[in-house]
Write a protein that binds this DNA or RNA. Structure first.
Lengths: 335, 335
DNA sequence: TTGTAAGCGTTATCAC
DNA sequence: GTGATAACGCTTACAA
């Protein structure tokens, strides 16, 4: 196999030095219009392609951005990633998507690899714990922004849906629809967004003179689905809870399917509101009322903030950026 | 900013040559147990990290694999990508996921970028047309495998679910359940997998002495959802079609939701079978009977074949690999 | 405006 | 077993 044609050959073929060729290619420095033409002609004829690996190596810059995402099969995440990827692509950046499978070791490994690959920036999506990026090399740090996950050193940029607002509105809606005893359903682990949603839920109760009861107003569903089903059916038949604000749509849809086997009907006996607005919301019966996150705005904000950081363009970035959410009314709530 | 610590420092600090350090790091060539310990200790203490960009540059090998995927928000694809990514990760490869958004230009651009990045191999998932990879440099070609998309030069590797078998079984099931007039529902564009599914559908009709009617047995749904809804309702109320084999679950779920507004009931009036087995199948009412694709096997086969190609391990690879699918019975079919 | 040459961090070849 | 050293393709002072 013939070796790749390099800048050196181009230089020889066009009778100039490699430095000049490099200047022409990158359109930087000075060169005459004539040499430019000459060089470009040879490049065109030979089908020369830049060796990015050499360029990256030399410049310590790769024009690629890493994304850490906990679970790419989750619609909210894949939707977000798709949008981010598209924006970055249009700005000339490649996106390296890393599925961490919520595994902290895998996350660490990826971080190291990305660092070794001279990644220019990093977008961290969600995850249970606060995010702290410690490079093995304390002098090196890749600029990053977090989405829905609080950075540990808190002068880093953090973009998030207004989970508090969403939860507040959802709960208020349940109450104004007549619910006297709403409960929130969550998993065991509290991500920063889950915490905010809980806070919004509690605030809505308070503002409506309802009391938040540690043992009744919050349900922690087991992650095993069989157990979760037993648990929720059991709980609902023994309590006077009459509406559920569920931490995300996937879980809400699970709950709806669990309740199909029972006498409990939605929304008459129990109203349900989810979070995210995944496509499946519209397919279930009853269709799921939910809080829609604005993935477009989140993606745009994240990329802009990150590229500002990477290029040092603007250094007056707000540290925390809250993106409004929207209540989408469907059939799992009254009215 | 202090410069990165390199193999050279490690060499000095441990009193050996850089060549020896390199051998230890890569565990290749000979070195004594003693020097190994010495070097490893220094590496550990200093927190030295390999510079992949230098390694890639030097070796013309990046230990990363590109994936071209048409739409990462589609569950079948994201599920596949997630599995592929996991397998590759465990083999020491990074995965660069490229969402082509079914855009042929974007695909071309990505291909060029990936080539410049010294990608070791390529996995191409689905897409409407046959895939043909032409490098700008005719002497260079990155090894690749296709999933659900036929490669143009047909001695390339091609992995696919047995769409023919799936469609055949689905249709046979509809017929054995009493359907006298099944129809297949598809989009306008025929991917290689869609073609196979159509072939299986037609074969099942033939084998059951049913006739395939060009104007009745096949429905091409408009991509606009409003129009699609009108179209399907109109069609079903005017024809004697009594079962539908739908080209994929997303479309089948759409159809189920369209029919909710009508008198037509599923499965009594119309039986429906989808394809893929996405999670939402279990959430709808009635739950959707479907053909499950075996994403695990597809992912494993694709990665193994590709890595064999990349490493030149085994050169007796079957060119086309068919992965069996499975009928999952739920409530959108009788019995 | 252009050329010379150093240097990025690694691997690989060869000699010892 | 180990060490010198060339080489990979590019960018970028610095010189001319």
């Amino acid at each position: 196999m013939k070796k790749n044609i390099s800048i050196k050959e181009i230089a020889e073929l066009s009778g100039v030095s490699i430095a000049t060729v490099s200047r022409v290619i990158n359109n930087n420095g000075r060169f005459s219009e004539e040499t430019k033409k000459k060089v470009l002609k040879v490049i065109d004829e030979t089908g020369y392609q830049l060796d990015y690996s050499a360029k990256t190596f030399r410049m310590k810059k790769s024009f690629s951005i890493g994304i850490l995402v906990p679970d790419i099969t989750n619609f909210f995440f894949s939707n977000l990633v798709e949008k981010i990827e598209e924006i970055l692509f249009n700005q000339g950046y490649t996106t390296i998507i890393c599925n961490t499978a919520r595994d902290i070791d895998k996350e660490r490994t990826y971080l190291n690899i990305l660092e070794g690959k001279m990644i220019d920036g990093l977008i961290i999506i969600s995850g249970a714990d606060q995010f702290s990026y410690k490079s093995l090399n304390p002098n090196k740090h890749i600029p990053y922004v977090c989405i829905d996950r609080e950075p540990k050193d808190n002068n880093n940029i953090f973009i998030s849906s207004d989970h508090y607002q969403g939860a507040y509105e959802a709960t208020k809606k349940l109450i104004s629809n007549g619910s006297l005893k709403p409960a929130i359903v969550m998993h065991k682990n509290y991500s920063s967004s889950a915490k905010e949603r809980l806070r919004g839920f509690i605030k809505a109760l308070e503002n409506s003179q309802l009391t938040y009861l540690e043992n009744e107003s919050i349900l922690h569903l087991p992650s095993d689905k069989i157990q979760a089903k037993k648990f929720i059916i059991n709980f609902l038949s023994q309590s006077t809870i009459d509406s559920l604000f569920v931490i995300n749509d996937n879980l809400a849809l699970d709950i709806i399917s669990y309740l199909k086997a029972t006498e409990i009907s939605i929304p008459e006996d129990i109203q349900i509101i989810g979070f995210d607005d995944i496509p499946a919301c519209k397919y279930v019966t009853p269709q799921l009322t939910t809080i829609r996150q604005d993935a477009d705005t989140i993606a745009n904000t994240a990329v802009n903030s990150l590229l500002n950081l990477v290029n040092g363009t603007s250094n007056f970035n707000k540290k925390k950026k809250l993106v409004p959410v929207k209540l989408i009314l469907r059939d799992s709530t009254l009215q």
